[in-house]
Design a protein around this nucleic acid. Structure first.
Lengths: 214, 214
DNA sequence: GCGAGTTTGAAACGGTTGTTTGAAATGTCA
DNA sequence: TGACATTTCAAACAACCGTTTCAAACTCGC
C-alpha cells in the first residue's frame, strides 16, 4: 500500500500501473489482484488510509481549546488545511491524489466528497457563520468559504505552474508559515469589511454596498 | 483539430485516444500521424489555437479605456479571467485542458507558462502595484496576486467536487456575474485593509500589523 | 515432520494503445 | 486524358495494460 500510494500520487489512478507498484514494493504482479481483488479496490484502500492519516496528523482544530474565538478557529482551519495540502511527508501523497481526483474524478471521489470533504465544508461554514454578522446572507457566507478554500487549494493544484514562472523563484511556493499567515490575514480582512457593509442591510441585495468600479 | 480539442478536454492528453478523435472527426486513424506527425504535435497545435481563441475572445482589459483606475483594471481582470475559465462555449475546452495541464503537466506546459500564463501574471502584478501603497513589500504583492488567482482557478479545478457537496445545489457553481462580483469585492476589501496596515511601515516585517489570533 | 491452507512466481491471455504500411482513392495540372 | 503528387483507408505492428492461471514455495497446527 505504501508503494501504491507513491505511484498513485505520481501518476494518478488511470496512469499508474500495477506493474510499477509491484516492482517498487518488491512483489509479484499478481499480488495486487490476490490481496485487493483489483486495481480499483487497491486505490480505494490507499485513499481511505491516506485520508485517515492526513486527518489525524493535521486535525482542523489543532491546538484549540473549547472556548476559542471564531478568528482563532479560522486561523487553525487554514493552517491545518495548508499543512495537509503542502506538507512534504506522507500526506503530500494524499494532497496530490486528491488534487488529481478533483480535476479527473474516479468513482472514488463520491465517497471522498461525502466522508472527507463534506465535514470540512460544514466546519468552515460554521466558523464563518460565527465570524460574519448574524443575518448574513447564507449565499455570501458560502462564497466567502469558497474564496478561502480556493486560496489554499491553489497551491495544491498549481505548483507545477508556479515553478515555471519567472523571475527565478519569485513565484515559488512560499514556506508554509508565511503562506498560512498571509491567507489568514487576507481572508480576515475581507471578511471584516464584507461583514461591516452587510450588517447594515442583513437581507438587502446590494443597495448599500459600495458600487464596484465599472 | 476541433474534435481533438473536444476529446483532449474530456480526457486529458494521456487518456485521450487518437482513435476517438478520428472517429469523432469522421477521419481515419492514420490521419493524425499523416497531418500532424504524432499525437503530441496535434496536442500542441490544439493548445496553441485554443489559447489564441480564449485570449482574443476574453481579453484581460475588456472594456477599459486608457485612463482606467487600478480598481477598474482589477475588476476587468478578474471578470475576463473567470470568463475564460468558466464559459461554456469554445474556451471551456481551453479551461479544462489548462486545468489538467496544471495538475498533470506534459511538455506543453513549459511553453504555455512562458507564452500565456507569464504575461497574465505580469499584468496582475502591475495592477496590484498600482493598487497597493508605494513601498509595499513585493512579496506581499505577489501573495495577494496568488490569493486572487486562487479564488478564480478554484472553480476551474474543483467543479466536480462542488457538484457532489450537500446540501442540494447549495454549493453549486454560482453564475459567473455573481461570482465575479464577489471575488472582486472580497479581494478589494482585503487589499484595502492590507494596504492600510502596510503603508505605515513600508519596509517593516510585521511589527505594527495586528497580531494573528493564536 | 507432515499435510492442509495460504501466499508467491513466471508466464500467458485478451484488449487497447500510438504508430506504420502499402494499396486504393482523390486531386492537380499539362 | 494521362502523369504525378496528395490524401484516405483497412489492416497490421509492437508495446503495454489489468487480469488470470497454475505450479512452486511457504506457513503453521498437529
Amino acid at each position: 500500500m505504501d508503494a501504491a500510494a507513491e505511484v498513485f500520487a505520481e501518476h494518478g489512478f488511470r496512469n499508474a500501473t500495477v506493474r510499477e507498484i509491484c516492482q517498487r514494493a518488491g512483489a509479484n504482479v499478481a499480488a495486487v489482484n490476490y490481496h485487493f481483488g483489483d486495481k480499483a479496490s487497491l486505490y480505494a484502500a490507499v485513499l481511505a488510509e491516506l485520508s485517515r492519516l492526513a486527518q489525524d496528523r493535521f486535525p482542523s482544530d489543532a491546538g484549540l481549546d473549547d472556548n476559542a474565538t471564531p478568528r482563532q478557529r479560522l486561523t487553525a482551519f487554514i493552517r491545518s488545511f495548508l499543512q495537509r495540502v503542502l506538507s512534504e511527508d506522507l500526506s503530500a501523497r494524499h494532497g496530490r491524489i486528491m488534487a488529481r481526483e478533483m480535476v479527473e474524478p474516479t468513482e472514488a471521489l463520491d465517497r471522498m466528497a461525502r466522508d472527507y470533504i463534506q465535514p470540512q465544508a460544514d466546519l468552515l461554514r460554521d466558523i464563518l457563520r460565527d465570524l460574519l454578522p448574524p443575518g448574513t446572507d447564507p449565499a455570501l457566507t458560502r462564497l466567502c468559504g469558497l474564496s478561502i478554500v480556493g486560496q489554499i487549494l491553489f497551491y495544491a493544484h498549481c505548483r507545477p505552474v508556479l515553478q515555471r514562472l519567472q523571475p527565478e523563484g519569485a513565484f515559488a511556493v512560499p514556506e508554509l508559515d508565511r503562506l498560512a499567515e498571509h491567507i489568514t490575514r487576507f481572508s480576515l480582512a475581507a471578511l471584516d469589511a464584507l461583514g461591516r457593509h452587510n450588517a447594515t442591510t442583513p437581507r438587502g441585495r446590494s443597495g448599500t454596498r459600495p458600487a464596484l468600479p465599472r
